[in-house]
């Protein structure tokens, strides 16, 4: 199945992000174009300060571009109200952050339930879905532990479960292994590969080329400019195509 047949989940054209600091303004993203298709595992790789997180914030509707167009799942994000953006985040995006960003006072399952609370799901269904998500990441035996009682790798898995719980079409991961040692980082990456195989669309942001190689497709970010050569996609495309029931 070729890319063109699949739905375009993310369509970014000529996107510019300018930060204004007093009198000066700084262009962090220059005319970025990026299209992500359903079922893809894309890595955005680049050195620190190149604008990756800025990019992810815009993709995740946490921030708004200065100009250009961004369509998420066919809907133009620009000009949407705060409330609408919150609803989009809730339904379309699953965030996985470098620092896990779990609420320390809540247990694992309560953390995973949060996006479902904001979606307005009733207690019983919410709990069932959260349990299911924790099972997916292999943490069903740690459900009632606080983040402080979990290792870094486990905390990141709770965060992934939280991202999965609402079954959003896109998972956005910003340096998901950045706070982990190599071995647990590998585990988390393996988990993400697994999710990809099961049909999830993933955008992975990293400064580490080795991490980026785990993705199916690599785009490079440097000084706010996004470039892509075919080399990044090649090695994985066959693998995806070989999954029996496709994506």
């Amino acid at each position: 199945m070729s890319r063109a047949d699949r739905a375009k989940l993310i369509e970014i054209e000529k996107l510019v992000k300018t930060y204004r600091m007093g009198q000066e303004s700084m262009n962090v993203l220059h005319d970025v174009d990026l299209t992500v298709y359903q079922g893809e595992f894309v890595a955005i790789v680049g050195p620190s300060g190149s604008g990756k997180s800025t990019m992810m914030n815009i993709i995740g509707c946490l921030d708004i571009a200065s100009s250009g167009s961004y369509k998420l799942d066919g809907v133009e994000v620009k000009g949407q109200s705060d409330n609408k953006l919150a609803a989009i985040r809730n339904q379309k995006i699953g965030f996985i952050f470098q620092g896990f960003q779990l609420l320390p006072k809540l247990t694992a399952i309560e953390n995973v339930e949060l996006p479902l609370i904001y979606r307005g799901l009733a207690g019983r269904e919410r709990r069932a879905r959260a349990e299911e998500a924790l099972r997916t990441v292999g943490l069903d035996d740690r459900m009632h532990h606080r983040p402080s009682e979990l290792s870094g790798g486990q905390q990141q898995r709770v965060a992934i479960a939280r991202a999965l719980a609402g079954e959003p079409p896109i998972l956005l991961a910003d340096e998901p292994t950045g706070a982990l040692d190599t071995r647990t980082g590998q585990e988390v990456l393996a988990l993400m590969e697994n999710l990809h195989r099961n049909g999830h669309t993933i955008v992975l942001i990293t400064h580490d080329m080795e991490v980026a190689e785990r993705a199916e497709r690599i785009v490079r970010m440097k000084d706010g400019v996004l470039t892509e050569d075919d080399s990044g996609r090649r090695n994985r495309r066959e693998a995806v195509a070989s999954i029996p029931n496709g994506v």
């Binding site: 995740g60 946490l62 705060d82 409330n83 919150a86 609803a87 985040r89 809730n90 339904q91 965030f95 960003q101 779990l102 609420l103 949060l114 996006p115 904001y118 979606r119 939280r162 609402g166």
Partner: peptide, 14 residues
Amino acid sequence: REIGIRKSLGAKRR
């Protein structure tokens, strides 16, 4: 930060 996390997960202003 908690507020930021909640908002990233879809909490509206309200």
